[in-house]
Nucleic acid binder design. Structure first.
Lengths: 363, 363
DNA sequence: TTGAAAGCGGTACCAG
DNA sequence: CTGGTACCGCTTTCAA
């Protein structure tokens, strides 16, 4: 709960003096006002109405092109002109307060720096949602627990939320109670009450391990990045390897040449004959170190990456990898849009993370 | 004199449909309502007040821990309990409408996929702003011109905006008129009326070219990625090379092996003896192609990257590069915070993009 | 210590 | 065709 009490003195004390409001002294043609203290307040529709000599209602009709009401062309023009002159911009909060709902879609700001693929997915999603006329808000939950984070999010009254799995059933409930039409979770497992976009990293580990086993390796080293924040991906990938029945050997590794050299020596001198290196970048690091240590890839040690980056194709030997398929942002955006329109829809569960082994020369 | 008549509270307006609002029929002691069709509407502070048997004012006091008012402990407890029971979450829009200001900081959603460095910067910035208790909103302007985008942003009444340079002085003005306390621009040149965080990619090109010239190359090939969206970076980098007085030869290149092979052959058979390859990834692609084409690096062609990725150190020869220094997100977040507190501050101009050549073996 | 009520800026009814 | 006005949910005076 982010209840920071407003320490600030009310900037707008209820001055009982009638019209302390500015903008009263506008003489149409008068342009040279020397001592102009400048309007310190932002223009409202009332200001526009006053300047155009109409009511606020009319201003609203004109500016929103309300179809059900007919406004004469001259009036329309006067209103528009006044709005332009004042630099009037409607107040979204006021509008949605009145409307009873927003067009906000909340996206999770991943606590940890996500991979480039995931970032790209989020970016595309964001773009697609914008195109569908949604206001995309990224809200950093900054270390709040699932339910507290949900409460913080709910304050914005988003029409939809794409939350990480950690939100839990309770968080989901909080959001739904506060009017969120669609709660989708992104993560390895479904959450009760929410739609699930299953992204299970175990799939990636499994694809890698299956390929390696088909090459005759039953004992597989699995690189576990020491870099903080990556365990969220690394752990399940390890599990996925295990799930194939292979013997998985965790291999902690920092993204530095020195540590890679150490690991390379260890591997050269014994250990699993195949390594699933977490992703292409760690794979490249390890492969280089292996080669520098005089080990043959894949002869002595087979190395497999993940993510299918271009760099894998440029290495020698060419790097075998796992291609990870994320759904297109547009696709998910459309799904969100549909779910918002049908809030009562049965919670759907959809697997959106595909993994395919790509055999090249390093395995 | 057109005095707007003070709206007098009409005690009984002829509203035909009296109370369509639910919850009006509470008979004090009546608590056991059997057929509860569940409240379909989201709970408001009024609901909490009713359940706790106090006024809305009291609810507000309790929930916000208002210091200036003393509320008895039993009452506080009743209110909190009621809020919990209803799953009450305050309505941010209503609150900021009343308060007259938001805590929203608007970040640009880059139209084009930005580089990993820039993404990392934005992520960190976002995180830091959240920590400073700002609501970070990413708003995709989806192909609106500077001023239109500004208008769209202004609807949210953000307290600060970090806009791309494209917003222009007019866009800046729109935002300021609608109450934005601080407008910062991220880009190559200052914008009138806004604070400028100068990120001039020419610096990168210049650093590369200076290094290459110190190696005796006065004619420098400059890779121009064909991938859409990268020209925004590539063009100024090219300019930067030119600015050193070197003869710059644009070298269009797609991020594919085939096109790289083509370019490599051309370079092998003549042309500039040095290439600034846009960044480390294009450099790697090109270097591989060069080697496959039988050209020696740096003997026949010197290759320089940018971004100082780890992969550069893993290549053979090791890749010379330009390290690009972006400011830390925390730093900028604090700057924003300060500027918001001092809206009248002189527009400041700050250079935030550093570039240093790192000589390794490829040049 | 608590309650009544006035708005914040817009929208959409209803009457003229 | 246009104006008056009652809300939306919340905060914050002022009075009791």
């Amino acid at each position: 709960m982010v209840q920071i009490p407003n320490q600030q003195p009310d900037p707008r004390p209820p001055s009982s003096d009638a019209s302390s409001r500015s903008g009263e002294s506008f003489t149409s043609g008068d342009s040279a006002e020397p001592a102009e203290p400048v309007a310190p307040s932002v223009p409202t529709s009332a200001d526009v109405a006053r300047l155009a000599g109409v009511s606020r209602a009319t201003v609203s009709y004109v500016l929103n092109n309300t179809g059900a009401v007919r406004i004469s062309e001259p009036t329309r023009h006067r209103v528009r002109e006044a709005a332009r002159e004042l630099g009037y911009v409607p107040h979204a909060a006021a509008r949605s307060l009145r409307a009873g709902h927003t067009r906000i879609v909340l996206l999770p700001t991943p606590e940890m720096p996500a991979g480039p693929l995931h970032s790209a997915f989020l970016n595309e999603l964001q773009w697609a949602l914008s195109r569908l006329d949604h206001t995309v808000v990224q809200y950093g939950s900054v270390g709040l627990t699932g339910e507290d984070a949900a409460r913080a999010w709910a304050e914005l009254r988003p029409v939809a939320v794409l939350a990480p799995t950690g939100i839990g059933p309770d968080g989901t409930a909080v959001l739904r109670r506060s009017g969120t039409k669609a709660v989708l979770t992104l993560g390895p497992e479904p959450v009760e009450g929410a739609h699930a976009l299953l992204m299970d990293q175990r799939t990636v580990g499994r694809a890698a391990a299956e390929h390696l086993r088909s090459r005759g390796h039953d004992r597989i080293g699995v690189v576990m990045p020491r870099e903080h924040g990556l365990d969220a991906y690394a752990e399940p990938r390890l599990e996925g390897v295990r799930a194939t029945g292979a013997e998985a050997v965790p291999l902690p590794l920092s993204y530095e040449e020195e540590d890679a050299a150490r690991l390379a020596r260890e591997l050269r001198d014994g250990g699993p004959g195949a390594v699933f290196a977490y992703n292409d970048e760690y794979a490249m690091l390890l492969m280089r170190a292996l080669q520098d240590a005089g080990a043959d890839v894949p002869g002595d040690v087979a190395v497999m990456g993940a993510d299918d980056l271009m760099l894998g194709r440029l290495l020698r030997p060419r790097l075998s990898t796992v291609r990870v398929d994320l759904p297109s942002g547009r696709e998910i955006a459309e799904l969100v849009d549909r779910l918002v329109r049908d809030p009562a829809a049965e919670p759907l569960v959809r697997d959106v993370l595909g993994a395919t082994a790509i055999a090249r020369e390093s395995t």
